[in-house]
Amino acid sequence: MNLFSSKNKKIVKDPLMGENPISIHVLGICSALAITTKIDTAVVMTIAVVAVLSISNVVISLLRNNIPNKVRIIIQMSVVASLVIIADQVLKAYMYDMSKLLGVFLALIITNCIVLGRAEAFAMQNSPSKALLDGMGNGLGYGAILIAVAFFRELFGFGSIYGAQVFSDQIYSGGYENNGLMILSPGAFFILGLIVWAHRAYTKVIDKD
């Protein structure tokens, strides 16, 4: 089967736009927001989530015909938890400063509803190659929102983008000040709320509520 058939592209693309796991299904924001004060942490978190989600999807998909139904959730969870531990260990060994910043929030990928949700809803029914694409798509969709939130929080909170100062001293001497609220938690809620609004206005998804 062609890996880049239109159907497969759809598997990756859907979660990025129309079916975004965060803005449409409200999944997995738990671990996401606390590390979105700076773009670089959000990027590393995205990479970790994409890696864990893709690999766990593939593993679960490979095992799908053998997993006893009774214990499937706990098996899925063990696989995910093991992958997260490996990600944490690798970060500690090769990106020590970053692992200090992410702290316990990396571990919380385990309870990130997206990872278990995709394992249960997609990987249990589909072939490994599709599961891989689904994992990547959902991971990237999640990461896109994460990085978007981080972009605004860093821009308005610190006046920088990806660590590079964008607001010059002239703007500051003209009376502009960094918005401290952005760095605090309410800033994350407001920005995420607005992003969800914009995204839904674009995709025309409406909640009954």
Binding site: P68, K70, S78, V79, I86
Partner: peptide, 22 residues
């Protein structure tokens, strides 16, 4: 029996993998 065997095997594999990485 199958459930127990399967769970045991998975546990052993994951345990070994994790210890090796750590």
């Amino acid at each position: 029996l199958y459930t127990i065997a399967f769970t045991t095997i998975i546990t052993v594999i994951l345990g070994l993998g994790l210890s090796a990485t750590a």
